[in-house]
Nucleic acid binder design. Structure first.
Lengths: 230, 230
DNA sequence: CGCCGTATTGAGCGCTCTCAAGCTAGGTGG
DNA sequence: CCACCTAGCTTGAGAGCGCTCAATACGGCG
């Protein structure tokens, strides 16, 4: 059972907050110490759902990070997305009715389970929220795939810039921790782990970033943006 | 002003038909010869909307085909999607409120303009339709990018299979016309026009497809699926 | 017929992959 | 405390695929 502070802090940046936090619900949430929906904790590598599982719920991430992936032919996995605190995972399963990806924690996680039936019920009761949902889903359509870039350097540079935005949403710090492995990054960007590592090393050697294992500091923002643009 | 038959036929396969065709609206549509919304005709190469245009409407394609693209650095364009008869274009602009792609006709087209404000109004009046919309948008999230494939052959094979599905939805024919140029295919798949042409020629030489300019016939469906899987 | 846009085909280069060998940090047990 | 182990990361050398640049072929249309 998550404590009050945790819920309150994560709920304030949750993309679905307008659904939970309106009216009297916010007071309920903040007085009794748990959100409208049930929380779940996941340890690193633990699965939230698996391919072909029946779709029943969306999940809002209160803490931690997840990846979604599809199994590829040669035991490899094609990573379809990373999801961080405040973001929603599961939209893509609404249509097929079963999960088309698997989702596993890349960190210890706390997620908020939102049963889809109840969610639709809430939409019926509070139709002013449907515009918000449509907006959220439209937003999902724009999360660009980095595969559109042709060179490894472009992909990695654009990926780092995206991470900076999503991991430090309110802050203007230029430092963040890569929650995922080089292999995961490679599988997401359509590169091998070796190429990913080589590009990161080159960016470090060229003083564009500072790299210490999983800690990244952006030293030359303009150069990085320039590399991402091509 | 489009004629009765055109509207009726295209409306029956339109993904938004549940919005127009229910109740008395269907009779209105089929008696007076035009749909609930305004039709627009576009000639080949004509733009439906341009990058940064204010987002005002979704468009259902009654006839023809369009592509959406973003301008790239070196005068190249990155094609983000092709859209065919019965499909909806424009969802991705809902969130930003302005168009993030440009959309142009690759064929002579007829589209049905659906002003977004009126669309939301319809959703308010007929809330049973909102589940349908959410489903449609979820479906969009799953239209796989072919860039996830690593080799040119995989991408082209998967692209041909997708086109077969979308251009012959009800039919089991194995023949279709490529509405777009080799350059467009290449820009969509992250390849050059030369590589696209080479792969198509190789598939033809290996008797997997029959290729005559823009006409494609799939000769060995299993082999093609096998190539797409990798 | 001649023009022009599109498609095909060829030759050589460069980037990324493959395969392989160290390296580092963190954990375990003696 | 240290030796050892393991997973993840880094770095290197060679090969293959797709890109670049270029020439040629084809078709539609005035």
């Amino acid at each position: 059972m998550p404590n009050h502070r945790l819920n309150y802090e994560s709920c304030t940046i949750c993309n679905l907050a307008p659904f939970c936090m309106g009216d009297e619900i916010i007071s309920e949430c903040s007085t009794n110490g748990h959100s409208l929906f049930k929380s779940k904790t996941l340890k690193r590598r633990e699965a939230l759902y698996l391919l072909k599982n029946k779709f029943q719920s969306l999940y809002a991430i209160q803490k931690g990070a997840l990846k979604t992936y599809q199994a590829e032919s040669a035991g490899k996995e094609l990573i379809r997305g990373f999801y961080f605190t405040g973001e929603i995972v599961g939209y893509e399963a609404i249509h097929p009715g079963e999960h088309v990806f698997s989702a596993v924690a890349i960190d210890d996680c706390v997620v908020c389970e939102i049963p889809y039936d109840e969610f639709l019920e809430m939409l019926r009761e509070r139709p002013e929220l449907q515009k918000h949902l449509i907006t959220l889903m439209s937003q999902q359509l724009n999360v660009g795939s980095y595969l559109k870039f042709t060179t490894a350097e472009q992909r990695v540079a654009a990926f780092l810039l995206d991470l900076l935005n999503r991991l430090n949403p309110a802050d203007d710090a230029l430092e963040f921790i890569l929650p995922m492995s080089r292999q995961d990054i490679g599988n997401y960007l359509g590169l091998t782990a070796e190429t990913t590592s080589r590009v990161l090393s080159r960016l470090h050697k060229n003083q564009i970033i500072k790299l210490n294992r999983k800690k990244v500091t952006i030293l030359q923002m303009d150069s990085l943006k320039h590399l991402a643009d091509g």
